[in-house]
Simulated scan of single mutants.
Amino acid sequence: MKILLGTGVALITPFKLDLSIDIDALKRVVNFCIEGNVDYLVVLGTTGESATLTSSEKQLVIDVVVEENAGRLPLVVGIGGNNTQLLTEELLKTNLKDFAAVLSVSPYYNKPTQEGIYRHFKTLAQASEKPLILYNVPGRTGSNIEPDTVLRLANDCSNIVGIKEASGDMAQIRSLINKLPSDFLVISGDDFTAYPTVIAGGVGVISVLGQGLPNELSRMIRLGLQGKEEEAFALHNAMIEGMKLIFQEGNPAGIKSILEARGICRPTVRLPLVEASSELKGRINEFMRAFTKIGA
């Protein structure tokens, strides 16, 4: 799975004012990321507001991204939830031919035990024709995938190949890197921990900010993977204010405001999310102006 080293981007789903999917804007986002030298694209993740999309809208997003990407970058698709049986059926019926892997979030709301999490992902692994990447985000799911559970899944399921780790806990991330087989992908799922994860031995990030600042974010990760820690840290430090701002009023309201500032899409989100406040947009615009000067 070396094609998933480096910087992946969790794509937004742009909307028009009437809340329909903005296909032209989605194409612009895809091309902006590709031209910004990111390494792969993630479709229908949390950032893509997949929870608010119908089945037909999800298929539309997939079709647009696959067509616009035209084989230029590897693609990962998000298929996750808290109903194991339904997810198994979805994996069996979904055409995954255009995807390198499936990203699947740990079951949310149910708050399963570690044994429940293990059995959930083992069942999905048996159903998936493509490699599976676990997604651990305790702040959203209400439960944590512990390192020993990840190790158990890595040893027992040959097509579980990595984890997107968004606990924000560097001690846990280091534990994963130290315990897991060397070819198991430990991917930062949090922009804040992307730099330290790579320096600790992780393989990269699935980023939100990376679609607003693709050149800079992907360069930071590349430098980190090359062991050029000082140069990578300088970029991390320059972007850290942007990382804070885009999550201040929820994701993807913040990153959509950055993309609005770049003229790529509208900042529209679907309820229960709301558009970023005028105050936050002002701060984002200030950051972008200052960051452009830093980049120059």
Rank of each mutant, 00 (worst) to 15 (best):
L235Q: 09
I21N: 12
V137W: 05
L217H: 08
F247A: 03
P107L: 01
E275R: 11
S175N: 14
A238L: 14
L245Q: 01
D148T: 10
P214E: 09
V198P: 00
M243Q: 02
K293T: 15
L225Q: 11
K228N: 14
M1Y: 12
F192C: 05
E286F: 08
A232W: 06
S106E: 15
P272T: 10
D156T: 08
A200Y: 05
A194R: 08
I3W: 14
K244V: 07
L17T: 15
V208K: 01
N31T: 12
L53C: 15
E279Y: 13
K256L: 12
T141R: 05
P138Q: 04
R270T: 11
E275G: 10
K97T: 14
S218H: 05
G227M: 04
V203Q: 10
Y109T: 00
I294D: 13
R266C: 02
Y40E: 02
Y108Q: 06
F291P: 01
L153R: 02
S55T: 05
S175R: 11
D39N: 11
L92P: 08
E90L: 13
T7C: 06
S158E: 00
N37I: 03
S182N: 09
S277H: 03
I23Q: 03
V269T: 06
G139V: 04
L273H: 02
Q211P: 12
P147E: 05
G81P: 07
I177D: 05
F287C: 06
R152P: 00
F192I: 10
D18L: 08
G142F: 00
E275C: 11
L44C: 03
K228Y: 14
Y135W: 00
P14S: 08
L151W: 15
A127N: 00
G224A: 01
V203L: 07
I23H: 13
I160H: 07
V76H: 07
K179V: 07
V66K: 01
S167V: 15
V102Q: 06
L259K: 04
M243N: 03
S167T: 05
V42F: 09
M243R: 09
E279F: 14
L245P: 00
I12S: 12
N69L: 05
V105F: 14
I294S: 13
T268I: 14
A276T: 03
V102I: 06
I240S: 08
L176M: 03
S207K: 02
G212F: 03
T52P: 03
L223R: 04
L151A: 14
I12M: 06
M288T: 04
G263Y: 08
V66F: 06
K93V: 15
V150E: 11
N69Y: 03
F192H: 10
K122I: 05
T88Y: 11
T149Q: 10
V76D: 13
A276E: 09
A200I: 04
P112C: 03
L217A: 04
S55N: 14
D183H: 11
A154F: 11
P107Q: 06
Y195S: 11
Q114P: 01
V29K: 10
L217C: 09
T88N: 15
N251M: 01
D169T: 04
G36Y: 04
E216L: 14
L53Q: 07
T141N: 05
E286S: 14
L153T: 15
S55K: 15
L273F: 01
L245N: 00
R222C: 05
I133K: 14
L53F: 11
P272K: 01
I206G: 07
I284H: 02
I3M: 14
V9H: 06
I145K: 01
